[in-house]
Amino acid sequence: APLSPTSALPPYFMKGSIIQLADGELKRVEDLRTEDFLQSAEVSGELKIDSSTVERIDTSRTPDAVIIQFSVGEHKAQVCVEVLVEYPFFVFGQGWSSCCPDRTTQLLALSCAKLSVGDVCISLTLKSLR
């Protein structure tokens, strides 16, 4: 199948993109570590890191897309998202991962691991949310 255009993915996932952490430090997207997100959430004061565990990964009717079911946060809310197979998620302790790492690397030059059921991804929530 023809590759979806990179424009379908946010520009900040492109290797070499400059990311500003909450303390002002600048890092390249490919150099980010789990600690960078944890510390930035601490500094931000408004945001909290949630652990979102991949429960299921199903094919979608949308071409080149999958439906990922997550168990989110301490309440284990069940959330489903439909994303392109190359969309990268940040897995705790592992780094960028997607359902189709080769495609992610081909489109974004971002090295990627394979996202699998059981992986725990970083997601955000507002501290003000109950």
């Binding site: 946010p10 520009p11 900040y12 996932f13 993109s17 400059i18 990311i19 500003q20 952490l21 909450a22 600048l26 997207v29 980010l32 960078d36 997100f37 930035s40 931000s44 945001l47 949630d50 979102s52 997550f70 989110v72 946060g73 309440h75 809310a77 959330v79 998202v81 998620f89 940040f90 991804c121 970083i122 997601s123 955000l124 929530t125 507002l126 003000s128 949310l129 109950r130």
Partner: peptide, 25 residues
Amino acid sequence: NVEPRSVPVFPWHSLVPFLETSQSN
């Protein structure tokens, strides 16, 4: 002569999703 060019800088929180479904206070 290298023309200076602006490099976009993205905030860290744009990289990870908001997945929580709870209602706000």
